[in-house]
Design a binder for these strands. Structure first.
Lengths: 372, 372
DNA sequence: TTGAAAGCGCTAACAA
DNA sequence: TTGTTAGCGCTTTCAA
């Protein structure tokens, strides 16, 4: 079809170059069989140096790119990974995604993203995606995809593709988990607040059903206990990690006659929304109320006041998850669980309660926990 | 992984069969040919009701899911769309992405994401992605992918897959463009600032090479001219849409002895970083300096002070781009250019200059431009 | 080390 | 309306 031009460059595209270059074309040009071309690509060491050289030359000359559909049909591999996440438009996830993409890219995998905004039908759809064999593996950023669908029947190996859980551990499933110590971090923040003298520390939660949330809530209680403070259900405000939830919690708090002196929000978004509402209501932060967040998103550092929060290594989390999945995909052993460290980031939104003194805060980071 | 069983015949269909159900299995069960099964799926109206019923029953019974690799190999369609974007971890893009994903999902397309963090090699990689036929079409959110690589030679139809440019129009290429009127919006904001009495309006730019940036910069100049203000190059500060760039611009401004009374930042991130730095330097916003942003990201409304900015319909932009691409993919006619409206969102970060009076601002939206 | 040849599972051209 | 059949482009036995 496409004779290579006299120049040695790939053919000029006249009307002629309809057809993509196939392995046959390369084989013919290199004067070998298609099998040899295939081998030269997959296992170069099993092809004689001469043949290999000719093959690569022919590939360069023709601009041959293997057809992934054919390859995939034959080899049952797609070199694609599915990433399932609850909300694409959430800053928290997008940074993780980037970490994932980086690593997958390096390893030659493509990334298919599925954003299931809480829609059960979408879960089913992406389960079908997996079932159809469109991907070699998947990274799950939400705790319950396949929670019902797939794992429910205990049929972990029904579809049989490697899965990795990121952040939201899937409790029953025994798939590798990449996470932070949510409980420990929440406990640590709570104790930090207590150590400054706060006796009444409110908690703005994530969605109840969320595994992360449960861990953090336990951590909050741990922290209270460690500080010798009683747990007061009246100080627990419902939330869902969004700015709006923070605003709602702020309104709730602002309307109270007696208020906690500190609030621990389980996401920075909520903390920022909460602070905004408090300020609008004429309260001072941290003067009247200290507010702490969780995640350390980009905006935490430039919030007004700058947010004291827990730093999560989001990109690294993504990278770690991708690395584990790639190991699995390539048959290498890989850790069943990776727990990355968090940092307690001290900024300006938290201070000792009104009646106590405190020097103006500077951003400080404290290593939150040692590796285990 | 596992050896396929005695490969002559498929296993029993119900028990935990190793082997995936194929079209043959369905055909046999429904007592029709594979062609009929295929037709029943693709063009049900061309199959007799009885046959169709039996086919669907068999599909339900077996849990048949077509093998996309085989389908794709044969039909030369992948039902995949590539989305190329400059920075996945940027809030601005993630909301757009969601709009895209929604629409693609509805139409039965999957989304492959490529984040090229300015790395030229990645551009090449994804160009290869397209060349290999892994996707049926692509949405480009950055102005210059294939700017050199592909379009350079004027060979638009070299790879021949439908392309849509989103936000950053690719100047020379004649592919459909989905965008906002950047120039008009920037002009409008500039005039708004001028109308409040600001005579000295600084501008924090995006990356120079960026097409968006050029449009907005022109708009800024248009606005100045319309307001009868001179253009002062000393009031143009370099930026790149990031928080850090805003911080840098803030430091620059804070260090000056005479300062503009207003600053127009071409992204909310920069505006937030700038405000933060100004406040830290002891300046008041908008008391001493008014600051305006661009984009209206989620955090704009809860920034302190709340940000006056240009609202971009990000999700809708994504949806529009996906819709156009789907039209193209399915051979329907589609508009060559879609321009969505922006809004001027008035909040608290902008006020008349110090010597003038102004009532406390409330969030207000004004339609920025009429459709054309 | 190499080549011939048999499919991977599906769709579409052609015939009936 | 339906079935037969020939590939789509590749990898991978199996022999040589």
């Amino acid at each position: 079809m496409d004779e290579s031009g006299p120049s040695g460059r790939p053919e000029q595209d006249d009307a002629s170059s309809h057809r993509a270059v196939r392995i046959q074309d390369v084989a013919k040009l290199a004067d070998v069989s298609t099998a040899t071309v295939s081998r030269a690509l997959a296992t170069p060491e099993r092809v004689s140096p001469e043949a290999r050289a000719r093959v690569f030359e022919a590939i360069a000359k023709t601009g041959y790119v293997p057809n992934p559909a054919a390859r995939s049909l034959r080899s049952q591999k797609t070199h694609m990974v599915l990433v399932v996440l609850p909300d694409l438009s959430n800053t928290f996830f997008s940074k993780i995604l980037r970490g994932i993409e980086e690593r997958l890219f390096e390893a030659g995998y493509g990334m298919i993203i599925s954003d299931l905004d809480g829609t059960p039908e979408k879960e089913a759809h992406f389960a079908a995606f997996i079932a159809a064999g469109r991907v070699d593996g998947a990274i799950l950023l939400n705790g319950h995809l396949f929670g019902q669908t797939r794992m429910g029947g205990g049929a972990t190996d029904r579809t049989g593709i490697p899965l990795v859980a990121l952040c939201e551990a899937i409790p029953s499933a025994d798939i590798p988990q990449i996470e932070i110590d949510n409980r420990g971090a929440a406990s640590r923040m709570t104790q930090h607040l207590a150590s400054l003298g706060h006796r009444s520390i409110a908690y703005v939660s994530g969605p109840e059903s969320n595994i992360l949330e449960r861990e953090r809530f336990l951590g909050y209680q741990d922290g209270l206990k460690a500080a010798g403070l009683p747990f007061d259900p009246g100080l627990v405000l419902p939330g869902d990690y969004t700015i709006e939830a923070g605003v709602a919690a702020g309104q709730n708090l602002a309307a109270r006659s007696t208020r906690p002196s500190a609030v621990f929000c389980t996401s920075d978004e909520m903390a920022i929304g909460l602070i905004r509402t408090l300020l609008s209501a004429g309260l001072r932060v941290p003067g009247d109320i200290s507010v702490a967040g969780f995640d350390d998103i980009e905006f935490a550092a430039v919030a007004e006041p700058a947010l004291t929060t827990i730093h999560q290594p989001r990109r690294e989390l993504g990278q770690a998850a991708a690395s584990v999945l790639i190991d699995l995909l390539q048959g290498r052993p890989s850790p069943k669980r990776i727990r990355l460290d968090t940092d307690l980031v001290l900024r300006d939104s938290v201070a000792p309660p009104q009646n106590m003194l405190k020097a103006p805060a500077k951003t400080t980071r404290t290593r939150a926990m040692k590796p285990t």
